[in-house]
């Protein structure tokens, strides 16, 4: 019983990270229709930057925001330099561009930092808390709290602020949004910046538990995709639920089946979703306009 509880705790912890990545995907997808394959790299940028700063003696409460800002800057650059010049390109080109950007960023991480695996101490120490037979790292609470905060922030931002409503309007009809005076360019910049910041934040929070290195971005992206697809592409609530579910499935696979193949579970979920329910748990059937 306590074993199961332990698996659930660790499942929710990693699940919360995947949920944050999935929320980032959803934000960009909703604003631009682009599925950003480079999303996982923001997680790495956040984690590696924080690790480097903390390693250099910068206190964590300064290093963490700086790492998030670094991710945000890269997000804006990604949009300005790679996505925007190809805005009218066909879907295939956009897929290839974001994959290329992801590989490029991976290489840049390796060049700027190194090929080592990094971690730093949890924000509230690493002494585990005991709850009903399971141990919980204080950092897990940070991670789960962080993801919930991101979700709440997005819900507030997109529905209650002018800038957020601009993103939503741009998403539903770019031309109409431009006609009623919304600065669609700014909305796109903003959605990439926010999405990247969310990814970087996930990296900053997760690194004490999951560790990070220059090449984990693709795996993170794949998990985030699985979460997005399971929840239903385009649905923020779906992203949150999908992330937690993927985390739980993964933890249970690792616990009861084989830890070698825990990463495979995300892939199996993708395939099952595609076979059985392509619109995901919370997604609506999409009718393409012709």
């Amino acid at each position: 019983m306590s074993e199961l509880l332990q698996f659930l705790v660790s499942g929710i912890t990693v699940g919360a990270i995947y949920a944050a990545i999935a929320l980032g995907f959803t934000l960009i997808y909703n604003a631009s229709g682009v599925v950003n394959f480079a999303q996982g790299e923001f997680v790495v940028i956040g984690g590696m930057t924080a690790a480097a700063l903390i390693g250099a003696g910068v206190p964590v409460w300064i290093a963490a925001p700086l790492a998030v800002i670094a991710g945000m800057l890269v997000g804006v650059l990604l949009y300005r330099l790679a996505i925007k010049p190809a805005r009218e390109a066909p879907l295939v080109s956009l897929i290839i561009i974001t994959i290329g950007a992801s590989i490029f960023l991976r290489g840049a991480m390796q060049a700027v930092f190194d090929k080592q695996i990094h971690r730093y101490d949890g924000f509230s120490g690493d002494a585990p808390l005991r709850v009903g037979g399971a141990t919980i790292l204080p950092q897990s609470l940070w991670i789960v709290g962080g993801s919930i905060a991101v979700f709440a922030f997005l819900a507030w931002f997109l529905n209650r602020t002018r800038a957020g409503r601009g993103i939503k309007a741009t998403a539903s009809n770019r031309m109409a949004a431009a006609l009623v005076g919304i600065n669609t360019g700014r909305a796109m910049n903003l959605s990439f910046a926010l999405s990247a910041a969310i990814g970087a934040l996930a990296g900053v929070l997760a690194t004490p538990v999951t560790f990070t290195s220059y090449d984990v971005g693709v795996l993170m992206a794949l998990k985030g995709f699985s979460a997005t697809m399971l929840g239903g592409v385009g649905s923020p609530l779906g992203a949150l639920a999908g992330g937690l579910l993927i985390g739980l499935i993964e933890a249970l696979t690792a616990g009861y089946i084989s830890s070698d193949y825990k990463d495979a579970s995300a892939f199996i979920v993708i395939l099952l979703v595609l076979f059985l329910r392509p619109q995901g748990l919370f997604g609506a059937r999409i009718t393409e306009r012709v």
């Binding site: 994959i99 590989i103 490029f104 960023l105 290489g107």
Partner: peptide, 19 residues
């Protein structure tokens, strides 16, 4: 040494400059 950056850069640049 910079395999990733070169490959990624080629993908992005080709798609933008000569699709």
């Amino acid at each position: 040494d910079y395999e990733h950056m070169v490959l990624g850069g080629i993908m992005v640049l080709t798609m933008i400059a000569m699709r």
